[in-house]
């Protein structure tokens, strides 16, 4: 297969969640979330009951993919940072280690300067965690829980 499978284990998940939770506080953010480049939501924190994180995740990935495509055409490295300023909400998007996307949504209680500063530190930590995770996934014996499923299990899913 071309891509190594994306896998999330409890240990790394907790580490990532800690970084994300802290970033919400340190940056005075409304919502912080992490998405992989294919649009799968990995982690979220803050006022997440009032936003559709699944939709945002897919759109963020689409956005990064589109600007990445533009960068390629311009023979430019991927644009690692994007900032969109709204009337009430602002969105800061940061590519971390060219693997995952860190999104911070904030309002006037925070500022771009503060968000940038905190995102920088969080990115370094996240990069480290994802590197470890990737190594773990590539270790032999990291079996898929799906190796044991039967055709019957799959059929049952569709019997309704």
């Amino acid at each position: 297969m071309v891509n190594p499978q994306m896998v999330m284990y409890e240990e790394e998940f907790n580490q990532i969640q800690t970084v994300v939770d802290r970033l919400v506080r340190d940056a005075n953010a409304k919502v912080v979330f992490i998405v992989d480049k294919n649009g799968q939501l990995i982690s979220a924190a803050g006022d997440i009951d009032n936003v559709d994180t699944t939709s945002l995740a897919s759109l963020t990935a689409g956005n990064i993919a589109a600007t990445g495509g533009m960068a390629k055409l311009l023979k430019e490295n991927e644009f690692a940072t994007q900032f969109h300023e709204g009337e009430k909400a602002n969105i800061h998007i940061q590519l971390v280690g060219n693997r995952v996307i860190l999104v911070v949504i904030f309002d006037s209680r925070s500022s771009l300067g503060l968000v940038r500063l905190r995102v920088k530190k969080a990115s370094e930590e996240l990069n480290h965690i994802f590197e470890t995770l990737l190594k773990k996934v590539q270790e032999p014996g990291a079996d898929s829980p799906f190796a044991e499923i039967t055709d019957e299990d799959i059929d049952n899913l569709f019997n309704d």
């Binding site: 297969m1 891509n3 190594p4 499978q5 994306m6 999330m8 409890e10 998940f13 898929s144 799906f146």
Partner: peptide, 9 residues
């Protein structure tokens, strides 16, 4: 590329 999340199962 499927994404298996052991934490969220």
């Amino acid at each position: 590329m499927s994404f298996i999340n052991y934490m969220a199962r």
